[in-house]
Structure formats: structure tokens, C-alpha cells
Design a protein around this nucleic acid. Structure first.
Lengths: 359, 359
DNA sequence: TTTTAGCACTCCTTTCGTTCAAGTGCTAAA
DNA sequence: TTTAGCACTTGAACGAAAGGAGTGCTAAAA
């Protein structure tokens, strides 16, 4: 697909993208000849640039400005030209200190990851905690509070639990709750929602006699608990960093971004991309209009085969991809490492980290 | 304190603030005479304006511009001059539809409140869910998952519960968990953290024999659970609305705002103000530098004597205070109303709203 | 055939002066 | 005490001119 580009064209394209990423100004032929990396006259480079433009890799904001990469240009750059960036000692230290933080609670870890990413890369960072694909409540537990109130605990899978306070006008006691608990565990635990037909629920209500009235509110909570969207959370850190890039200062770009940050649905959509390594969305590639001029780079955090979240950054298309990619890869893998316990492939409770030689 | 201002000065100040709030342009003497509300010449009004400026209520961006209110001017306006705004039918409908939403779960309610506020007022809205002042776990409950894992449920007060998954290398079963549960309820439930001295904990460990090793991780979770800050959350909706006000488009104001939105600590501080009705912070009044040129209007949501959160908006000092105040008051009280159940003064479970005549 | 020097041309950006309009403060008269 | 009148200030808007960066093309050189 890209074979059409001669090595020299590639080198020139790379130089242009590199320069533009750094400066933000359109780069002209003179800039390249001055950089000494080519033993060519500016005229030759101009010819090449004109061809690269014809091929769709470059564009001119206007005659007599230099060239800037198109989305296609960036795409080729990240796919084929970009060099690996070696994180500096300081950067590694920053990332590591975050990974070694006391709490390995997933929420905090992911949230902190966002802050660190934003700081390190100087782009707004996105940190997602993904809802688990669980769609059944595996176990119910009821805790008595007083006659009119009890706590409903729903365990979903082996790594998530939801609680709800239930107020009831039918006075309950420990004994009743035990019974109700058992009924719930028999009838509902482990069952798919589709099982919960009306007749099925009525059957359940019969088992409960006077307490049948509790079924419907509880079932409502069950529905809420298994709602996948419920549990996913997306944080954006360092939004103000956008202002450091002049491309956002004018026109409606900033508004588009902030609007997208506010709504979040487009972001979730973009982040749903499959792909297990770092994913790079350049501009409108994925059909999101608000992404015009901006790129999103992220990587899922996969623990024991399950995607538990993602970290990434969003910024102008002229983003320091190589550094960003390195940082994201390191952090994403690092978080996965902290959360993973080889023995059982499960998410670990925080204590596990602090006391590894307990046994 | 404000007696120094003659009624006419007050009227003129009010007219200026009103006009400036609406237009955003400095208002001159001519504008006021043209508005027909004064039977005075522009010269007279100019004199009054000059005096209001000398008194610190107005300022001029530059000679030959009209006057704009100072922070003091706004302060006087909101304290003494502002008229009540009657919410329109449409606005009331919007607010009510939100209050009648299916779920009365406090998190969602408050979160939605933010969205609605931002929409209605056209300023970014702030929605806070406050950490409850609870500082003890009132009840423990353990749920068996498998030999190496169980769920720890901590009930705090009668309106909040936390869950943690505990992984253990000491195999457990239902029976052990019952015992542990009992010990926890005896030793820790309802106790202040200061009670949990090392000797006390060791005593507890003795009761548990082989399972003493579980105490320390659990106590750590207890500490986490009662951490007040843990539970408070602050959402900001409609950040992009800031861009509709030209005052933010230039200079570093926007960056200040976004930075403040990001950090949130200054916001928490501002929102900690006491005061049970709508609170209005104008500019740097409260010493927050980033608030220069912006105002924050909010009201706590108080349910049964407890502050459970707050809603507010933040925007330029030239904010439509009267509308904002009305909307915030209505919404804050409305949410409190939805959450309050007169019979017991407690937070109610969602079902309560849908099924009020269950008994 | 490829590269390069030279040059005319385009178009943005900056600067600078001019004009324009808004709004003021002051003075003197009503 | 109020008002008409007027000189003055000042930012905003406009346009012309200058400057500069960068291009494409042509023709010569390699």
C-alpha cells in the first residue's frame, strides 16, 4: 500500500512530520535543507514535497506557507516512520513511583495514571475504568440494619460488588432476610436476565409469602447492577493543557473538544476499538467529527485476559507520538502488572501487594 | 454599611449591572438615558456614575469606555438590588422532569442535576456529592465467595456501604466468616478509629486464632472506608459553555478555570462555605486567585439536617444571578425533597418514590 | 535523466496611520 | 441641582504598504 513512496520521499515526509510536531509551524523546503540531514537543494525537496502533496500526505494551508501533514501523512508516519522513544530516567521514575503507590485499588490506580500521563506528556489524559462484561449477579447477601431497612449486596463475577439500601414497609428481621437471601440465591443468582420472566418472578414471590412485595424492587436493583455502563468511568485530566497548543485557541476546535469531554459518549466509542497494543486514532479517521485536528492514543489495560480499563492521551494531531506511545505502553502494562497475580490470574486485593510473603 | 448610596445611585447601579450582565459591553451614560427608566440627562447620570466609581462600585476599562461593575458592585447588586427571577413554565418543567426521574439514587440525581443546571443556565454546572461525616463502620458483613476469597461489606451509618474483595491465603469457609463477622462487629463496629490501638487489635487477633492474619488487611480497609474524602465527588458539566462568554476567550482566564476544574481542591474549599441558602462567591472575594473575573453560585443539598451534596454554577462575574439563584434554589430543594422521607428523616431507597402507597 | 540556481509570483503577517464612534469630564447656563 | 455643549481621550476598524516566507516553473548544470 505504501510502496509507492521512495525511501527519499519517506525520509522527507518523516522530517516534515517531526519538524511540524515540534514547532507547530508549517515547514518549508528551506527548513529541511538547513537541518543538514539532506544533501539536496531546496528545489529538489520542493519537487518531492509537491509530489507528496499530490499523493495526499501533505497539504498547504495556503500558497507560500510550508507544508503540514494530512491525516494520511500522520497515519503513514505512525505506521512506518516513527522511531521508538526511550523514556528518560526521570520519566521512568515518575511512572514507576505512580505504579508503586500504596493502594493498588483499581479505581485509584487508573485515576492516578491519568494525572501522571497528563503531566508527563503535556496533553490531556484519559483514564477509563471499564465495566466488566459480567451480566449476572453471582451471589446475593442481605444485611440487616433495622426493621425497615436492610442492605442488599450483589456480587457480580468475582471482582465486583454492588450495594443498595432497601427500605421496606414490611418489617423484616434477620430470619426473614436469611430466607430472602436463600430465595434470591436460588432463583436469581447466576441466572441471565432473560430468565427473569414475569411468571418466574411470580413463582418466586409465592415462595416468599408475606414478603413477596420485596421482589420487584430488588429485581430492579439487579437490573441496575448488571448494567454494564453503570460501572464504567472515564476521567480526563489536564484539560487545561489543550490551551498550550495554538491550534485549539482559534475557531471552534476547543469547543468541540470540551464538548466531547463533557459528553464522553464519542470517547467511549473510540476507546472501544479492538486492538491489544497501543491504538492511535488520527483526526476523523474513525468518523468522529469532533476529532478533526486531534488525535487519540490509548492502550487497554488487560489483566488476566480481561480488559479492565484503558489509559491514553488526546491532543492535536501534531502530537509527540513516539513519546506518548512509549509512555502509554509502559503505564498500561505497568498497571496490568500491578493488578495481576500470577498464581490465580485474578485481580488482587490491595493487601496482596504489601505482604507478598504472607504464607 | 451600604447606606451611603442614595436610592438614585442604587437604581443607576442596578441598571448598569443589569445591562452589563445582559450585553457584556461596558455601559455608558447614554445607554441608560435611552432605556427610558430615568428622567435624567446623560450628564447627570455621568456625574452619578463618576461618584459610584469613586466609591468603588464601578470601574472603567479605559477612558471613553462605559462603566462595568467591580466585585464590590456585583456584591451590592446581589445583596440588595437583584430582583427575584420567576422560572418560566418551560424551565420548571425541565427541572421537574429531572426530579421525577426514575432513579432517586443520590449519585445519579446529583449528577443529572449538574447536566440540567448547565443546560438551563448556560453556565458550567458543578454537582457535588459530599462525603458523609460518618467516621465509624456501624456494621460488618462477610460474604463467602470461595476458599481464598470473600467479600467484606462495611456499612457506615445508615446510608452508605463499602465493599472490598479480600483475598486470603488462609482458606476460609462460611463458618469462619460468621465468626470473623461476629468478632468484627464486636470489636470494631461503631468504634471510633482511635479505639483501634495496637494492643486492642492484638486482643482481637487472639480471638481469631489461626485467622488472626486477616485482621490487619481488614483494618486497613476500615480506615479506607471511613476516610471522608473517599466518598466525595465533584462533577462539572457543560465546561464548553465557558467559551460562549468572550471574557474567557482571551488572556489566561480560561486556563485558570480549566486548571481549577481539574484540580478541584479550590472548588471544594469554596463549596465548604457554611450558609444554608444560596451562596454567591464573586471573583476573588474568598481569596482564590483563579476565581478572578468569575463567580460561583451554589447551594447545599440538605436532607434531614445532613449536607449530602451541593449544586451550583460557575461563570463570569457578569452572570444572570437572579435566574441562576432561582434555578439553584429550586433544584437543590427539589433534590432534598426527593431524598427526604418525612416519616423517618432518612435517605430513602429509590423504590420508595415509585411505590409510595405500598403499605 | 536528475538536480539545482534563479526568479517571478502569491499570500499571509505585521505595521502604521487614519478615521470613527463611544463615552467621558468639565464648564457654564438654566 | 440639572442639563446642554464641547473638547478630549481612547479603543476599534479599516486600509495601504512593506516584509517575508515559500512556492512553482524554467532553464542550465551535472
Amino acid at each position: 500500500m505504501y510502496n509507492e513512496l521512495s525511501p527519499r520521499k519517506q525520509a522527507i515526509l518523516k522530517a516534515i512530520v517531526d519538524a511540524y510536531i515540534e514547532s507547530g509551524d508549517p515547514v518549508g523546503s528551506k527548513t529541511l535543507t538547513q537541518s543538514k540531514q539532506f544533501v539536496l537543494s531546496s528545489a529538489t525537496i520542493r519537487n518531492e514535497m509537491a509530489e507528496l502533496e499530490a499523493l495526499g500526505y501533505l497539504e498547504q494551508p495556503h500558497t507560500s506557507a510550508g507544508r503540514i501533514p494530512t491525516e494520511l501523512g500522520y497515519r503513514f508516519y505512525v505506521d512506518a516512520l516513527m522511531q521508538d522513544y526511550a523514556l528518560s530516567q526521570g520519566e521512568l521514575a515518575e511512572l514507576n513511583s505512580m505504579l508503586k503507590a500504596k493502594s493498588a485499588e483499581i479505581d485509584k490506580l487508573i485515576h492516578n495514571a491519568g494525572k501522571v500521563m497528563a503531566n508527563l506528556t503535556n496533553y490531556p489524559a484519559i483514564a477509563v475504568k471499564q465495566g466488566q462484561g459480567k451480566n449476572t449477579v453471582t451471589r446475593f447477601s442481605l444485611t440487616y440494619i433495622d426493621e425497615g431497612n436492610f442492605l442488599l449486596v450483589m456480587v457480580c463475577g468475582s471482582r465486583s460488588a454492588k450495594t443498595r439500601f432497601v427500605r421496606t414497609d414490611i418489617p423484616v428481621n434477620e430470619e426473614v432476610l436469611r430466607m430472602l437471601e436463600q430465595v434470591l440465591n436460588n432463583f436469581v443468582a447466576g441466572k441471565d436476565l432473560s430468565t427473569l420472566t414475569l411468571p418466574y418472578l411470580m413463582q418466586m414471590e409465592q415462595c416468599l409469602g408475606n414478603y413477596a412485595g420485596l421482589v420487584s424492587p430488588i429485581i430492579k436493583f439487579v437490573y441496575e447492577a448488571v448494567d454494564k455502563d453503570e460501572e464504567r468511568a472515564l476521567h480526563i485530566d489536564g484539560v487545561d493543557k489543550l490551551l498550550e497548543y495554538p491550534e485549539f485557541m482559534e475557531s471552534g476546535k476547543l469547543k468541540d473538544m470540551l464538548g466531547m469531554f463533557d459528553r464522553k459518549d464519542e470517547l467511549f466509542e473510540l476507546l472501544d476499538e479492538e486492538g491489544d497494543d497501543v491504538t492511535i486514532c488520527i483526526g476523523r479517521e474513525k468518523g468522529v467529527e469532533a476529532m478533526a485536528g486531534s488525535s487519540l492514543v490509548f492502550k487497554k489495560i488487560v489483566v488476566g485476559g480481561k480488559t479492565v480499563g484503558a489509559v491514553g492521551v488526546i491532543g492535536p494531531c501534531r502530537m509527540d507520538y513516539s513519546k506518548v506511545v512509549s509512555a502509554i505502553r509502559y503505564l498500561s502494562d505497568g498497571i496490568a502488572g500491578v493488578l495481576y497475580t500470577p498464581q490465580n490470574g485474578q485481580l488482587t486485593a490491595p493487601t496482596e501487594q504489601d505482604d507478598p510473603n504472607k504464607r
